[in-house]
């Protein structure tokens, strides 16, 4: 798979070196494994879990950043720029959506790897989709359908008119996803509907996520307004400061002018007195 970049594994150092896994407690090690998309329960004893974590880290370090960003964009995860591969991977493993429309093929490969799917060399998008759905299992499928039904119910109660997207339709008629390198566009524009959110995170998780997003939007809007107000105020201060500066320079120049006038008048009077004195001396002679 071209999504795995063998040379890039040397570029991005992992946040925690492999040797330091021994220093972690069992809970910390299991948390680390979960953050990398591994279920720690089948790995007993501890050495097997450490080996699996190291193997997963090696796999992540070989992934293309662009492909990972495709998945992040598709999953609408808010991430700061400049994150390492491991941080991106821990964001990706939190994406539980099964609606793969809008995800590029390279992103699909990354997602399949991080969800622990058995990805083979010749797998195309359709086979990867099939494997991902198969990996979900019957219980998972039922749970997701239940959440989907719940989401539709809540969506109807809230009066959202957005039509639910068909389940996992391929973005092209042939079943292939957008070509690699092409940025993954979000399927529904601004953000997921409440139905999608409930389907992905459950009833309370979805509602909480929606509330959080609405609060974020409100706070961002208010912050923008405050920023605009501060900018206006700064412009006003700058303008007043400019006026004050010009007025100050003008006043100083006026004071200097008055002083120079006084000096010139006194010098002229002094010259006239000297001239009169010289004239009187000449006349007296």
């Amino acid at each position: 798979m071209s999504t795995l970049d063998a040379s890039s594994s040397r570029e991005s150092p992992a946040p925690r070196p492999a040797g330091s896994l021994h220093q972690l407690s069992q809970d910390e090690l299991e948390d680390l494994a979960r953050s990398l998309g591994l279920d720690p329960s089948p790995f007993r004893p501890r050495e097997r879990l450490e080996a699996a974590v190291n193997e997963r880290r090696h796999l992540i370090s070989a992934m293309q950043i662009d492909a990972m960003l495709d998945v992040i964009k598709w999953g609408r995860r808010p991430v700061a720029p400049g994150l390492s591969r491991e941080q991106l991977a821990s964001e990706i493993v939190q994406i539980r959506s099964m609606r793969f429309e809008g995800l590029s093929e390279r992103g699909l490969v990354v997602l399949a790897f991080l969800r622990g799917t058995d990805v083979k060399e010749g797998d195309n998008a359709a086979s990867l989709l099939k494997k991902l759905r198969k990996q979900e299992g019957l219980l998972g499928w039922f749970a997701r359908k239940r959440r989907q039904w719940m989401g539709r119910l809540v969506s109807n109660m809230l009066g959202e008119t957005e039509a639910p997207a068909p389940e996992s339709p391929p973005s092209s008629p042939s079943g292939a996803l957008p070509p690699p390198g092409e940025p993954a566009a979000p399927p529904n524009g601004a953000g997921p509907s409440i139905q999608e959110e409930i389907e992905e995170s459950g009833l309370f998780g979805g509602i909480a996520s929606r509330l959080r997003r609405s609060a974020d939007v409100y706070v961002n809007q208010k912050l923008d307004e405050i920023e605009a107000r501060i900018d206006r105020k700064l412009d006003e201060i700058d303008r007043r400061l400019g006026e004050w500066r010009d007025k100050e320079v003008s006043n100083r120049l006026k004071i200097l002018k008055i002083t120079l006038w006084a000096s010139v008048i006194v010098a002229a009077v002094s010259l006239i007195i000297s001239w009169i004195r010289v004239a009187m001396q000449t006349a007296g002679k």
Binding site: D246, V249, S250, L253, K254, L256, K257, L260
Partner: peptide
């Protein structure tokens, strides 16, 4: 604004 004053000075 004050080139005239400057010239006078």
């Amino acid at each position: 604004g004050f080139w005239y004053d400057l010239l006078i000075c």
